[in-house]
Computed example of a mutant assay.
Amino acid sequence: MQSGIGPRISVIVAVYNAEKYLEQCISSILSQSYGNFELIIIDGLSKDKSTSIIESYGTKVNYWVSEPDQGIYDAWNKGIAVATGSWFTFVGADDVLYEYAFESYINHILLHQNSHRLDFLSSYIELVTEELAPIRTIGSMWKWQEFKINMTTGHVGCFHARSLFETYGYFDSTYKISGDYELLLRAKENLKADFVPVATVRMRTGGVSASQLKKAIDETYRAKAKNNILPLWKARTLAVVDKVRIKFNI
């Protein structure tokens, strides 16, 4: 495929005090073999050199703003509101895309017999250390029966159609960890999903604190109750059970 021939991609990066890896992230986006994309950066009023790094790229960053926000999903919503693409991808400020990532997705879309109906695409994600040493590779075809139990995709290895947000709304910014899971639960088994069997990104993964894990459990079950996957009483009960299991390594 020639660079830039195909649907436009909106790449949305939420940033907060990300100076350590931000340049590496932006460089991996701007180095894509597929050129029809816009780069949108939403900074949460960073106190480090993040905004200086963003400014250094000039017009290569199509849109950016630095202002207080209510977390990553609020930042993503701001990006969606100004985006012009037909497909959206959300990249972490410390993630590194492979140069063929966008081309792999677009080729898959263009060859798909029902591309006009697709809502969501995922791919393989390589989990790595801070130094980009490999840990393991995750990713599989989205399946409702598995997804309604656990989050089986990582946001950085995914493409979201504009129509997904037009149909089901933006992210719920009251979530701080599991908002991407909650959004996809809204569609239930009606989500039109497919899988790109290629590793598209290296995702740095640090240790998850106990408090973060507990919050993720609470938000995951809240999302299930909100979308009528589980009754509220059962969701709350299972959240307590899961936290007890983690605490005592059961």
Rank of each mutant, 00 (worst) to 15 (best):
A216R: 04
I217Y: 06
F165Y: 12
A187Y: 08
V244R: 03
A223Y: 00
G207I: 13
A199F: 05
D172Q: 04
E189C: 07
L232F: 12
T174G: 02
K214A: 08
Y170W: 04
V240E: 14
I177Q: 05
Y221F: 14
P231N: 13
W233K: 07
I246E: 14
G179F: 02
E189T: 11
V241S: 10
R245H: 11
K226Y: 04
S209A: 14
K176Q: 11
E219A: 02
K214H: 12
K215D: 08
L230S: 05
T174E: 09
A216Q: 06
A223C: 08
K192V: 11
L183I: 04
A210K: 10
T205H: 11
S178W: 02
L230K: 01
L164H: 01
G169E: 15
S163G: 06
L184P: 01
A225V: 06
N190H: 15
Y221R: 00
D218I: 04
R202N: 11
D242L: 12
S163N: 08
K192W: 05
L232E: 15
A216S: 13
P231C: 12
T237G: 11
T200M: 13
F171D: 02
P231T: 11
A225L: 08
V241P: 03
L185K: 00
N190E: 15
T200R: 05
Y170I: 01
L238E: 12
L232W: 12
K188M: 09
L213E: 11
D172G: 05
D218C: 06
A239Y: 04
E189Q: 14
D194K: 01
D218A: 08
K234N: 12
Q212R: 11
A199K: 10
G179D: 05
M203E: 09
K215M: 13
M203D: 06
R162A: 11
D242E: 15
F171Q: 00
L232C: 09
L164N: 00
L238C: 07
R162C: 07
K234I: 14
V208T: 15
D180Q: 09
T200N: 12
E166Y: 10
G207S: 11
L185G: 00
L185A: 03
D172E: 10
L232K: 13
I229M: 09
L185I: 03
L164I: 05
D172Y: 04
Y168R: 01
S163H: 06
D242G: 08
L164G: 01
A193M: 13
A210P: 01
R222S: 07
W233Q: 07
A199P: 03
L230Y: 10
E182F: 04
R162F: 09
K192Y: 09
Y168G: 00
V208C: 09
F171T: 00
A223M: 04
Y181K: 03
I246K: 08
L164K: 00
V241F: 14
I246L: 15
L164D: 01
A239I: 04
R204S: 07
T200S: 12
D218R: 03
E189I: 06
A187H: 09
D218H: 06
F195N: 02
D180A: 07
K188C: 08
